[in-house]
């Protein structure tokens, strides 16, 4: 039995190493001069550690702009989803109005529509509105999501009606009830939704690749992909430093909030 346990641990540690080592190598490689990576690709520790790769990003390559764009797009997307999806979720779960079934039906139908299907006409809509290469063009299509509405509606149905009735009898208006009674109870689904949307926005690639056409609007993945398929395609030191800066914020967030991330996956699985 103990031999089996040792074997099991060894196998798990080996698998975990295979999963995590590429990130460690990325980090170590990002502080090596490119010539050193080239000379000995299999080496782990840098002989002459340098921050030159990072300096290049902060200098000529304007990573601050891309980083700022990624943060702005992700934050506005998250806030929009939290606010608008919880409002619709509340209306669908607790209010009676003509069109409620139709709206919920449409949300359910679009829940499973893959992004690739709407991507071309979506670009036409955004182009017609004159939003190509603008922040609005990057953000608006993702400002709400059927997934978010579904998530909030399912959760809000579990809030007892008596609570809302009590507030109504006290003379509170619907907006007040929503802001003071409903929202404070929505911590868990809002956390899940916020994390799911932040992750999706931070790593979103196809849409910003198409809509962001000038360097001023590039998000981090778009900028990194253009450098890694362009002239700098083999400057691994530089590209590794870029990769480190793309994944560090999201991995830090993940480790800090890992319980919520995992819950998000489980929820997405239940939809």
């Amino acid at each position: 039995m103990t031999a089996r346990r040792v074997l099991l641990h060894a196998a798990l540690i080996a698998a975990a190493a295979l999963t995590v080592l590429p990130f460690l190598w990325m980090l170590l490689g990002s502080v090596k001069p490119d010539s050193e990576i080239r000379a000995d690709p299999a080496a782990w520790l840098p002989h002459t550690p340098t921050l030159d790769n990072y300096r290049q990003w902060f200098g000529a390559l304007r990573i601050g702009t891309y980083f700022g764009n990624s943060v702005l797009v992700a934050l506005v997307t998250v806030l929009g989803n939290l606010l608008f999806c919880s409002m619709v979720g509340y209306a669908l779960a607790k209010l009676r109005f003509p069109g409620r079934r139709l709206l919920f039906g449409l949300v359910m139908v679009t829940l499973m529509v893959p992004g690739v299907v709407t991507f071309v006409p979506l670009f036409v809509v955004v182009a017609r509105l004159g939003l190509v290469d603008t922040y609005a063009g990057l953000i608006l299509p993702f400002l709400t999501s059927p997934t978010g509405v579904f998530l909030m509606r399912q959760y809000l149905r579990s809030i007892p009606d008596e609570l809302l009735e009590a507030a109504r009898i006290d003379g509170a208006g619907e907006f007040r009830i929503f802001a003071r009674v409903v929202l404070p109870l929505c911590g868990p689904p809002l956390a899940t939704l916020g994390i799911l949307q932040f992750l999706a926005s931070w790593n979103n690639f196809l849409w910003p690749l198409v809509v962001a056409q000038s360097q001023d609007r590039y998000t981090l993945p778009v900028a990194l992909s253009l450098y890694s398929t362009g002239e700098q395609a083999t400057d691994y030191g530089l590209l590794l430093a870029g990769s480190v800066m793309v994944i560090t914020p999201i991995v830090a967030l993940f480790i800090a909030l890992q319980r919520w991330f995992v819950q998000g996956v489980a929820t997405a699985g239940l939809k």
Binding site: F84, V88, A91, L95, T110, V113, P121, V124, T144, P146
Partner: peptide, 26 residues
């Protein structure tokens, strides 16, 4: 209550209609 509900759904319906339903049909 119906008016309130519509007001609550308005921002979502506008974004969802323009950037999801219109492209889906188109």
């Amino acid at each position: 209550q119906a008016w309130t509900a519509w007001a609550f759904t308005l921002p979502f319906v506008a974004v969802f209609g323009l950037f999801m339903l219109v492209p889906l049909v188109s």
